[in-house]
């Protein structure tokens, strides 16, 4: 088991968003969490990666996490390559490791031609490609993705599933949060977050 969450509760003021969320994930699985806008999906992910604290409940994660936030969190004045360098320092990766992985991601997601461009000069789709690539740079054991394919064209969307399929085959677990689930056969399990509970 790579992730186990038990009875997670989170409120914002009087509004209870998570009322007791429990679930677990095994190695090499792809899980989806669906739910309407405002149902608490992103809140749950932010708690799992450590950005927010749950009011109650506990969770355990084994291994390295890769997190792709819903909104592209990038430095507008830095280039694509500089992002890879900055985040590789955060992950503590050796130069040879992050360079080969960034080359792989630039090719797989088809944005090599923008590597020297500043983020402020890139399109929304390319922002999202970089946003996702930064989560994959250190080859994590658990990938937590919040609406990862927003803004992707069809080709990139299929490339995304190729990459995640490859990672899954290597034992990586992938948790995808989305408000719109298509191709349910790609998931090992799908939860619906409704009224603060996972169904």
């Amino acid at each position: 088991m790579i992730l186990k969450a038990e009875n997670m509760i989170k409120s914002f003021g009087k509004k209870k968003v998570l009322k007791g969320v429990s679930f677990s994930m095994d190695e090499g699985t792809v899980y989806g969490i669906a739910g309407e806008n405002g149902s608490g999906k992103s809140t749950l992910l932010k708690i799992l990666v450590g950005l927010w604290k749950a009011d109650k409940g506990d969770f355990l994660i084994k291994g390295k996490i890769g997190y792709c936030p819903q909104e592209s969190l990038l430095f507008s004045q830095l280039t694509v390559d500089e992002h890879f360098r900055y985040f590789s320092a955060a992950y503590g990766l050796a130069k040879s490791n992050w360079q080969s992985q960034s080359e792989f991601l630039l090719d797989q997601l088809n944005f090599r031609q923008y590597r020297k461009d500043k983020v402020s000069d890139l399109s929304g789709g390319t922002h999202q490609k970089l946003n996702l690539s930064l989560a994959l740079l250190h080859q994590p054991d658990l990938l937590i993705l919040d609406e990862p394919y927003n803004g992707f064209d069809w080709e990139t969307y299929f490339r995304f599933w190729e990459i995640t399929g490859h990672m899954k085959s290597q034992g990586c677990s992938i948790l995808i949060v989305t408000h719109l689930l298509s191709e349910v056969n790609r998931f090992d399990r799908i939860y619906n977050l409704k009224n603060g509970y996972l169904e």
């Binding site: 996490i65 936030p69 969190l73 320092a89 955060a90 992950y91 250190h138």
Partner: peptide, 11 residues
């Protein structure tokens, strides 16, 4: 906000 992302990644 993005600094917090860097912290999730290890900073």
């Amino acid at each position: 906000t993005i600094n917090r992302r860097l912290m999730v990644c290890g900073y």
